[in-house]
């Protein structure tokens, strides 16, 4: 190739590469970005356990329709008291299912009891896998939204995990990136003060004080309620 053609050629290939990349690359900051479909050892039907009851069929005899409305925290019991939500031990599955003879011969349940008889844990795979330097605290969010503000459990879990109650095996619906987390923390939330410490609210109002060395002005929304941002301390998650 002629020397004077080299640069335009390289420029053109670069632009083509960028265009292809932009066309194929999925953006991570969309509202409902799906994660990869993770293959689990047993296809656990979340919709059947946590999904809404079928009003026409209150006995839930048709497995394709209604759910049991089981609280997320019944199985993911560690969420309210530790950093991680955790997956239930096999004992918890069997604890119920040994008393449900009607589904005992279903292929998923047969598979479940194979693990139980072999005394082996089910090797579930992680769906919402954060990098090792991130320590998201489930407990704090559960305490704030469910216990202090009394919001419905499935709604609160759904803020980050999406509509798990409609899924079979869980799949990541939200980006779960730091920018996505911070987008909520940077909003002005109403401060729910109870007693000496602002409860229900991490919003303390002085969070960004040390970053600016200026006392932040008191912020109020249109209804005149005191508002503040969520914590922006890096050391809450990265340590």
């Amino acid at each position: 190739m002629h020397r004077y053609l080299r640069f335009p050629f390289m420029l053109a290939s670069f632009l083509v590469a960028v265009a292809c990349h932009a066309a194929t690359e999925q953006t991570l900051t969309t509202e409902d970005d799906l994660g990869p479909q993770v293959q689990q050892p047993i296809e656990f039907p979340h919709y059947r356990h946590a999904g809404n009851r079928n009003p026409v069929d209150p006995t839930n005899s048709d497995p394709t329709k209604g759910g049991m409305e089981i609280n997320c925290q019944y199985c993911h019991t560690y969420a309210r008291r530790s950093l991680t939500a955790g997956i239930p031990p096999l004992q918890k599955c069997v604890g119920c299912h040994q008393n449900i003879p009607t589904v005992r011969d279903k292929p998923r349940i047969v598979e479940l009891f194979k693990y139980w008889d072999a005394k082996k844990a089910i090797p579930w795979k992680k769906v919402h896998d954060l990098p090792d330097f991130v320590r998201f605290n489930h407990e704090r969010h559960i305490k704030r939204f469910i216990e202090q503000q009394g919001r419905p459990v499935q709604e609160v879990c759904g803020y980050c995990h999406g509509q798990v109650k409609e899924m079979v095996t869980a799949r990541r619906q939200k980006p779960i990136t730091m920018g996505w987390c911070v987008s909520c923390h940077m909003k002005e939330h109403v401060v729910v003060a109870k007693g000496a410490i602002p409860e229900g609210g991490t919003p303390i109002g002085k969070q960004d004080y040390w970053y600016t060395f200026q006392k932040p002005a008191e912020t109020r929304n249109a209804e005149g309620e005191l508002t503040a941002k969520g914590p922006n301390d890096c050391w809450l998650c990265h340590k």
Partner: peptide, 30 residues
């Protein structure tokens, strides 16, 4: 605590992992 890789600075944290755990517990109890 994060296991640090090559090329980053580190220092005493006043055991921040313990502080944060205690702060979260206390906050949950108001």
């Amino acid at each position: 605590v994060t296991v640090r890789g090559k090329g980053v600075m580190e220092k005493c944290t006043f055991c921040v992992q313990r502080l944060r755990a205690a702060e979260v517990t206390a906050k949950g109890e108001g």
